[in-house]
């Protein structure tokens, strides 16, 4: 028996985007301000879990039709490849560097290889959180 929780669903539809945008903001500003891959990933996962709670897991599966374990693996791969990438420039494992670029729209921007590593962390955290929650949730 399910009650008609239209308020929750409507609110979710709005709030999810705000959370996701905020989480990406937190993730991207990690280099200079509080935040980073870990907390960003957790927040993104929280947004998706919110969808799961307001609707159901099937809906989430329809919106994100891929395996979250794959996301974890991709994240780990990105992190490791970032480390290995340093070898090309004759540096030791996981040596990071940064520089300033002029990008269209954004202007002078600092781009660091540490961000690539953080993307790996971000993906892993999302993948892990969702795998755990949904695996337990689907277990009847």
């Amino acid at each position: 028996m399910r009650t008609n929780d239209v308020v929750l669903k409507t609110a979710t539809q709005l709030v999810t985007f705000i959370i996701i945008i905020f989480s990406i903001y937190v993730f991207l500003q990690g280099h200079h301000n509080p935040g980073g891959g870990f907390i960003g990933g957790l927040m993104t996962a929280a947004a998706i879990i919110l969808i799961g709670i307001a609707f159901d897991i099937k809906t989430v599966r329809r919106i994100l039709p891929f395996d979250f374990k794959l996301l974890t693996a991709t994240g780990l791969l990105i992190a490791v490849l970032t480390g290995i990438g340093a070898f090309i420039f004759d540096a030791t494992f996981l040596t990071h560097t940064y520089d300033y670029f002029y990008l269209p729209l954004l202007g002078k921007t600092e781009l660091a290889t540490a961000l690539l590593f953080d993307i790996g962390v971000y993906f892993v955290v999302i993948g892990v959180t969702l795998t755990i929650i949904f695996t337990i949730g689907e277990d009847s």
Binding site: H31, A79, G83, A112, A114, F117
Partner: peptide, 22 residues
């Protein structure tokens, strides 16, 4: 090149630990 020292330590100075934590 980062102002958030915690994050710089996590992904740059001590990135190796983070790799294994994930």
């Amino acid at each position: 090149g980062g102002k958030n020292m915690v994050n710089v330590i996590l992904v740059d100075f001590r990135g190796f630990d983070t790799l294994f934590e994930i």
